[in-house]
């Protein structure tokens, strides 16, 4: 059962990724990316990482991709124009990319000493504890410092974005509203 679902959604994922590259319309590419992300979420779910799966759906498919599609819609981006690259580059390029990615994946797996996850089993050995409880206890004890540093980093990014947006509009927001109406 799990194996069938795995192949089904892995297939969806690959089909979405290939479609993403082949489509010339930006919005169809963005939608293919959403298919990829939701299929990835199902794969996480099959591995027993339920929280990761739903976070993938909410954050990536729900929030970030909405921004992508918004930008495409608002800019009304036209069809992509393709340059025909050399045929030899294509023949060498794809196998080379596959080889490099395989090497990177193997190195990461070996260097980190990561084990193999099995389909249909939970990620944790602790019985009676949900995925989220385990994850939160790790996040807020062992990984507290990186976690907080990341959140501060995001806060700085938000402040930077606000500063840039305000800088572009010339005079401060309050004045403009008052004089505008």
């Amino acid at each position: 059962m799990h194996l069938i679902l795995f192949f089904l959604f892995a297939g969806f994922c690959l089909a979405g990724a290939i479609n993403l590259l082949l489509q010339s319309h930006p919005i169809t590419s963005a939608l293919s990316l959403i298919v990829v992300m939701t299929s990835l979420a199902v794969l996480y779910l099959l591995l027993g990482a339920e929280f990761l799966a739903i976070a993938q759906v909410i954050v990536y498919a729900g929030a970030i991709m909405v921004l992508f599609t918004f930008v495409v819609m608002l800019l009304n981006a036209g069809r992509e124009e393709r340059t025909m690259g050399s045929r030899s580059a294509r023949a060498v390029g794809f196998p080379a990319v596959v080889a490099i990615l395989a090497v990177i994946a193997t190195v990461i797996l070996k260097a980190q000493g990561l084990g193999v996850a099995t389909l249909g089993e939970g990620l944790t050995d602790a019985s009676g504890k949900t995925n989220i409880e385990e994850l939160s206890s790790v996040l807020f004890t062992q990984l507290l410092l990186p976690f907080e540093v990341t959140s501060i980093l995001i806060l700085i990014a938000i402040l930077g974005a606000v500063a840039l947006a305000r800088h572009g509009s010339g005079e401060p927001q309050g004045n403009r509203e008052r004089t505008g109406k």
Binding site: T38, F51, I54, A55, V57, I58, A61
Partner: peptide
């Protein structure tokens, strides 16, 4: 979370 996630997909 599933309910929230499905709602956020509904925006599309």
């Amino acid at each position: 979370l599933v309910i929230l996630g499905v709602t956020s997909i509904g925006v599309y």
